[in-house]
Amino acid sequence: MWETLAQAVINGLLIGGIYALVSIGVTLIFGVVKIVNFAQGEFVMLGMYISFFLATQFGIDPLVSLVVSMPVLFLAGVLIQHFLIRRVLGPNDMPQIFLTFALSLLLLNLSLMLFSANYRTVHTSYSDEAWHIGGLYIPVAKLIAFAVAMALSGLLWVFLHTTDLGRAMRAASQNRDVAMLMGINPNRVFAVAFGTALALAGAAGSLLMPFYSAYPFVGQVFVLMAFVAVVMGTLGNVMGALVASLMMGVAESLGIQFVGADSGLIVVFGLLLLTLAFRPSGLGARRGR
């Protein structure tokens, strides 16, 4: 019984690390640029395909291809922010919603056309490996993914709190007008924020590739959990999103284990409703930004 419970928690934490990379991206964009990026899942998908093609064409390990997928998606983020998002920033939310939603549909259907609906997997030496400790097991690929995800989240935290650009980002997220008065160029800050968020999505894609299949709809699977985590962890709060993501992973795993294999999401959304009922602005609200 304890063994099953412990195993369920381990499973949940490991997958929660991936949810965290996606949700931190969403919450960063929301916090700084103040828009909801519905296309975040599709950028995870692009990250996966980048790693897939680098692995199959050039034999590059998906984890190594992180150094390609992250910069490529960072650049894509900067360009999207500069040419698309910047034009719709204003008091009206509707154009922003439509823009990112349209972006999601466009990327989805483009990739269906280019890559077809087939499932693509990459086989690495560690894909099917696991460490066995007592009666428990820890899949190596997921452990690596979790560790890198946590390291990247940590780096982001350090960046936001110790560098000028990071502080500027936090300032712009708190009050754009005052930040501008202080000499911060919001367009530059927004571009970096959007790029960073997409780079995280790309990282999630590369980290997933050794143990998950790439297909055009793959982003949708992860983005749902990410949105739940973003709301639970307080909108715009990076640390909140991280903690909430790990909680979501564990809640889903426990739900499947002890409630029913089709009830993982029921438990997750039950938890979300409870949170909203008792702490409407999310778990991260008290700590501030």
Binding site: Q7, N11, P139, Y212, V221, I256
Partner: peptide
């Protein structure tokens, strides 16, 4: 005899159940 929701992110909990 267990239904699961298609398109999951992680099969580990389900396999944990099979094991049990």
């Amino acid at each position: 005899f267990e239904p699961y929701s298609a398109g999951f992110t992680d099969a580990s909990p389900l396999i944990n159940k099979v094991k049990a």
